[in-house]
Amino acid sequence: MPPRCHLDHITVIAQTLDEGARFVHAALGVAPQTGGEHPRMGTHNLLLRLGDSAFLEVIAVNPLAPPPARPRWFALDSLDARSAPALATWVVRSSDIHATQAELPETLGEIEAMSRGALNWLITIPADGSLPLGGVAPTLIEWSTATHPAAGLRDHGLSLLGLELCHPEPERLANLLQPLELGNIVAVSGATSPRLLARIMTPDGLKTLSI
Rank of each mutant, 00 (worst) to 15 (best):
G29L: 12
R93I: 07
C166N: 04
G20A: 13
A113K: 06
P71A: 04
R116A: 15
F74I: 02
I211G: 15
R40M: 07
L197G: 02
L7I: 06
P170M: 11
W90K: 09
S130H: 12
R195G: 03
F23C: 09
R195M: 10
V24F: 13
I211C: 12
H44W: 13
A151W: 04
S53L: 01
N45P: 00
N175D: 07
L140P: 01
D8Q: 03
L140Q: 00
P168L: 10
A187H: 14
A137I: 02
S94N: 08
H6T: 13
R195I: 04
S115Q: 15
R49T: 00
H44G: 02
R199C: 08
R4E: 04
T124I: 10
M114C: 04
S193Q: 14
A102Y: 08
R22V: 13
H148C: 03
A60G: 00
I211K: 07
H25A: 13
H38Q: 12
W143Y: 02
D77N: 05
G129W: 07
H9V: 05
A54Y: 00
P66M: 11
A150G: 05
P2C: 01
I200N: 03
A27P: 01
R22G: 08
L17Y: 06
T89I: 09
S83G: 03
L48V: 05
R172Y: 05
W121D: 05
L46W: 02
P2Q: 03
L76E: 04
A26F: 11
G157M: 08
A118D: 15
S53F: 00
A54L: 00
T11E: 11
A118C: 09
L153C: 04
E164I: 09
F23N: 05
G134N: 05
H44I: 04
I141G: 00
I13Y: 08
E164W: 13
S95F: 11
G35M: 14
W73H: 03
N184A: 15
L46D: 06
R22S: 15
M114A: 14
E57S: 01
P149W: 06
D96Q: 11
D155H: 13
A31W: 13
L56K: 00
D80T: 04
H98Q: 12
